[in-house]
Design a protein around this nucleic acid. Structure first.
Lengths: 148, 148
DNA sequence: GCTTGAAGCTCTAGTCGCTGTAGGTTTTAG
DNA sequence: CTAAAACCTACAGCGACTAGAGCTTCAAGC
């Protein structure tokens, strides 16, 4: 019986997130409302700590909250959800790979911009010239960055 | 004299962004307010088209709007801004590289999660087990994804 | 038992960079 | 002249939190 109940602050420290984040998860129905003290302060048990830890881990892996919600359901009915969980994880892996590919093309162009700058005999800046003239980059790629 | 003045829709098509985006840039003071027709519709000239194109190109490279704003100022005073522009571009390159590094570590963990799933004799799902138990991943890494 | 300061509470607004909608007006092609 | 497309303003919403104001409760020391 090491942790009978945790305050929200202790819970936040123990999983490494902010107090407000926990309250936010409760508000959007991701975490169930916990028990309260007589003075209406939240107290959490080990089960809820595990659940929050699960959520945070999934979030750190970049799963969006709707996906986290699905994974929580699958985790709860701990049977027959494996194929679906795999599918969700695959989707996330695909998204991460697409994101990486895009960022790599951005990196290439930023590096090109910076490497060629030594032409400033002319008084003009390569970085600015590149941004001003889309023809100066190889220009096939870089659609805009999506978020996750 | 091919383009004397463009409507907002024509401008949007010509640089590849949405009409609302242009109005938004005007609203936040990134693009100057253009001339208007008698009926109060916006009309743009080639100078503003170039400016918008510059902005969009920078955005596609992931520069945040405050950085774009700085770059625009440097581009306007087209002298002596090169060192600063380089610095901004370097900052952006660093941010992109950090982002890539983090996503790579996420990819590694997602792949590990998915590859090991063949242990489902036990009826338990590797994906869910991994999310539930932080000890199952190598666990040193993955701080949370930052946006740009 | 009392004090005090940290930590808790609710509620609201702000972040970033747009995007979408509602409800109306103007332009333009036929 | 009509009808449809494009435009206008104003505001709400996205995702996932984060920050602040203004108040209350808890826990530890005396």
């Amino acid at each position: 019986m090491p942790e009978i109940s945790l305050s929200i602050g202790a819970l936040a420290r123990s999983v490494g997130c902010k107090v407000q984040t926990i309250r936010y998860y409760e508000q959007i129905g991701l975490l169930p409302a916990p028990a309260r003290t007589a003075g209406a302060q939240r107290r959490y048990g080990p089960v809820q700590r595990e659940k929050l830890s699960f959520i945070r881990h999934a979030r750190e892996l970049g799963f969006p909250l709707p996906a986290v919600r699905e994974l929580l359901v699958l985790a709860e009915q701990q049977k027959s959800g494996c194929a679906q969980a795999d599918q969700i994880a695959h989707r996330q892996l695909d998204a991460v790979n697409r994101h990486i590919a895009m960022l790599n093309s951005l990196r290439v162009e930023l590096e090109r911009m910076l490497q060629h700058r030594r032409g400033y005999r002319t008084g003009e800046c390569r970085v600015i010239a590149t941004l001003a003239d889309h023809g100066l980059c190889r220009g096939e790629h870089h659609g805009q960055p999506t978020q996750d």
